[in-house]
Nucleic acid binder design. Sequence first.
DNA 1: CGAATCCTTGAACACCTTCAACAGGGGTGG
DNA 2: CCACCCCTGTTGAAGGTGTTCAAGGATTCG
Lengths: 248, 248
Amino acid sequence: MPKHSTVAADLARFKVACQNCSLFQLCLPVGLDRGDLELLDRIIKRRRPVHRGEHLFHAGEPFQSIYAVRSGSVKTYTVSEDGGEQVTGFHLPGELFGLDAINAGKHPCSAVALEATSVCEVPFDRLEELGEDVPSLPRQMLRVMSKTILHDQTLLAYLSKKTAEERLAGFLCSLSQRFSQRGFSAREFNLSMSRVDIGNYLALAEETVSRLFTRFQEQGLLSVVRKHVRLHDLDRVRALAGAAVSAR
Amino acid sequence: MPKHSTVAADLARFKVACQNCSLFQLCLPVGLDRGDLELLDRIIKRRRPVHRGEHLFHAGEPFQSIYAVRSGSVKTYTVSEDGGEQVTGFHLPGELFGLDAINAGKHPCSAVALEATSVCEVPFDRLEELGEDVPSLPRQMLRVMSKTILHDQTLLAYLSKKTAEERLAGFLCSLSQRFSQRGFSAREFNLSMSRVDIGNYLALAEETVSRLFTRFQEQGLLSVVRKHVRLHDLDRVRALAGAAVSAR
DNA sequence: CGAATCCTTGAACACCTTCAACAGGGGTGG
DNA sequence: CCACCCCTGTTGAAGGTGTTCAAGGATTCG
């Protein structure tokens, strides 16, 4: 498998480290100095890139690490006892996932790559040990989790109060904002997730999502070709979305 | 105001302290020994009981403390820019709230007492300082927040996938479980929140909630008289609720 | 090229909402 | 103590938004 070894070689060449990672400020917003970073860097495992459809972990597995997306994207989802899937989040570069496993000690959800993706894996027990020497670390962790809670509550409000149109517009705004934070275009990007996933996440039928994309296109708000989205009128999309959209 | 002083005297007499608090294990599930508790106890402020309708904090106010319910119940809610209210949670004795403010440093939601309620207020800066000496404390915090995230995700799945009937049944199951954990009856309790609040929380119209209560009653599942609920057939309510309901 | 998957479009239907009116408590003031 | 009023909760009927069912088109991959 020549492909793997090439990628591995690339990674080695790049000397991947938190200090050099352009996403670092997104993972752990503030409060870690260079020395702390050095320590943190030592405990992080980097996994070889995963392919589209590969899982990082499955629901029910024991919790050992939290994860940060380096590149690509990840979908987390739960499966209810009747087999129904519920998408709990999409995770872009610089975002952490797996935090919801801390309480029970096992993952309540599964995580799967939506495209070719690489992640940092941070063993939680070592992170906790490190936290005893670096007080700002647990503080950062709490902030990240607080942000996650806020995001979930925003989403909750969205599903409760908003129409299908507002939800999809809000979703697109959220993606736009997150992409631009990462240095990508705010107006043009690829949806790594399927219409089914979007619908599942926003509590809409796949067909409704599809119809809305068509309608938005007819209204001149955007153009969609398969996975590719181009927002022509970001302001109007924002207006459609109504209330402010959480950053994550 | 003779009433206040009486209550204050009561509190003093009871020598309220985490060690003696029957709810302690609910606030901070495991891992704190007696000495840690003593330290924690010193930084906790106890506020005089608040009346129904009184606020603990308002959205937008600077974040200073997290709160734990001692008795009574609290509703947290956000107000969107168009003035619409969104209930984000109901908090029973032993449950923490205000955690969602850690990230931004200000409260994203408001908290109001649904009945006569008393809370513990824990200044967050002092809690963080204490965390540097007591490593199990930040660990506990993370667990509590992880649990909150899990709860929100469960709720999200509920709003996404379930019918109005399943949502209300699930809500009742959740309350039942939480009351029984606190030593109250699992089959008979008072709803401190209004039908409007329940509907808001479950993303249903007030009328739908009302109709469902009536229907459940007709089916012999329960009886409701105003705020008072008695679950006759807990198993059937659970069955109606479908998937397992989060504990919080 | 064929199969599988993803996406789109149409039509009928269901669930819940909205609008409207009314009933019943609980508190206040007379 | 009773009358009144306001607020909460209940019930009915009409209507809308999104779903479900069904079929067909597009894209990708073996």
